[in-house]
């Protein structure tokens, strides 16, 4: 098992570093986007091989979203007439936000989250939940406030640009 984890760790590490070099030195926006996606996938694999499965999922989502966001900004800078694509991206984002709201409502109403009986599972999520919402609740609130402020700043910047 340790040998398998070691092999997975080094393969994912090579993928992440190669993706970072590709994002640094890539000649076009599509190459740089591909490199950033490789960084996200490789980092998630490295974290998973370090027995940090929950952090691997979070890193895959957050770094992947950052890659798509920055890659889109990079591509828009190369092609200034991308207003139609930007409008489509905004509509897709609005639909995704609505779907996320529905998902959160279903979890809050029908799920077992409020009762506190959720199993830890493979990610040991219950121990992490105790850390997030117990000992380090202030850090979690600070990060959530930073994310909310970032969304608000992006919305204000987008509305002023129009």
């Amino acid at each position: 098992m340790d040998l398998v984890l070691t092999i997975v760790f080094f393969i994912c590490a090579i993928l992440a570093v190669a993706g970072a070099l590709g994002a640094s030195l890539g000649p076009t926006a599509s190459w740089r986007l591909l490199g950033l996606l490789a960084v996200a996938a490789g980092t998630a694999g490295v974290l998973a091989s370090l027995w940090a499965g929950f952090a691997a999922v979070i890193a895959l989502v957050c770094l992947g979203a950052s890659a798509v966001l920055i890659g889109g900004t990079d591509a828009a800078a190369e092609r200034p007439d991308a207003s139609v694509r930007a409008a489509l991206t905004g509509q897709v984002g609005a639909a995704a936000a609505a779907a996320l709201l529905v998902l959160l409502l279903v979890v809050a109403v029908r799920g077992s989250f409020a009762a506190g009986v959720g199993p830890g599972g493979a990610f040991d999520a219950s121990a992490l939940g105790r850390l997030f919402f117990g000992r380090d609740a202030l850090a979690l609130e600070a990060v959530a406030a930073a994310l909310t402020a970032a969304f608000a700043a992006a919305a204000v910047a987008g509305s002023r640009r129009r």
Partner: peptide, 13 residues
């Protein structure tokens, strides 16, 4: 693991 998740979210912000 907790700090790694928080750093990832801060990177997204």
């Amino acid at each position: 693991q907790e700090l790694a998740a928080l750093v990832s979210v801060v990177g997204l912000a």
